[in-house]
Computed example of a mutant assay.
Amino acid sequence: MNQQNITQVHAPTRHFSVPLSPTPRGARLARLLAVEWMRDQEVPYGVTDPATQVIAELAANAATHGRVTGRSFRLALLSRPGVLRVEVTDTRGEKPPRARPVGVEGESGRGLLLVEALADRWGVERGPVPRKTVWAELDLPPR
């Protein structure tokens, strides 16, 4: 095993998690906090720009479609060698997100299409009831 592989195996996973109000203000705060965390973690700019857009879309979806009065949504960011993972958890587990075709005149509905285009992988995990987590992963360049 070469030195690079040893470093990657033992490199720590860095984690950030925060509950936010399911409002437009909470969605904006998710984006702002994520940008600062990525800056502190020295995530490369080529990843932070698309990651910021993914976070904005997933947080907006949680605040709009996953909103339950009195319940927050959670933003979590995990950075490990080679991958930045974004997770947004809300309490509308019965309402899974779907990417849908959008008409040219439509003003909304493009968020998951954008996530699909920007992320290397994305998906949805259900549970524990009543939650669901929408996640996206962006590959990081080698250090």
Rank of each mutant, 00 (worst) to 15 (best):
V18R: 15
Q3S: 12
G109W: 04
T13S: 14
F73I: 00
A60H: 13
R121K: 08
V35W: 11
T23R: 03
G93D: 07
V83N: 05
A56I: 01
R67A: 11
Q41N: 12
R100S: 14
G106V: 10
P141Y: 07
A99T: 03
A30W: 07
P142G: 04
A56M: 07
G46V: 12
W135Q: 00
V35C: 10
L118N: 01
W122G: 00
R80F: 07
A59I: 05
R85I: 10
G93A: 06
G109A: 07
V9P: 02
L58H: 02
K132A: 05
R92Q: 10
T23E: 07
A99D: 09
W122H: 09
A56K: 04
R80N: 10
G123M: 05
L112H: 04
S108M: 10
R100K: 12
S17Y: 03
G46M: 11
R31D: 03
A51Y: 00
A62K: 00
V124T: 08
L29T: 10
G127C: 06
G111A: 11
F16I: 03
L75Q: 07
L78K: 13
L33N: 08
R71V: 08
V18L: 15
T48L: 05
A56N: 04
R67C: 09
A11Y: 06
A51P: 01
T13E: 14
V134H: 00
R131A: 13
R121E: 14
D49A: 15
Q4M: 11
S108F: 12
V35I: 13
E137G: 09
K95S: 12
V43F: 03
V18S: 15
R92F: 04
W135H: 02
R71Y: 10
M1L: 10
Q8H: 15
R71T: 06
G111L: 03
A62Y: 02
Q3M: 11
A30T: 05
L75D: 07
A60N: 14
A117C: 06
L77C: 05
K95G: 04
F73E: 02
R131D: 10
L20M: 08
G82S: 06
P128G: 10
D49M: 12
S108V: 12
T13H: 09
Q8P: 03
A56Q: 06
Y45P: 13
L33I: 04
L113I: 08
P141D: 08
V9Q: 13
P19K: 10
L112F: 15
A63K: 08
V86S: 04
T64W: 11
W122M: 01
L77R: 02
A27V: 04
R31I: 05
I55T: 00
D49H: 12
Y45A: 15
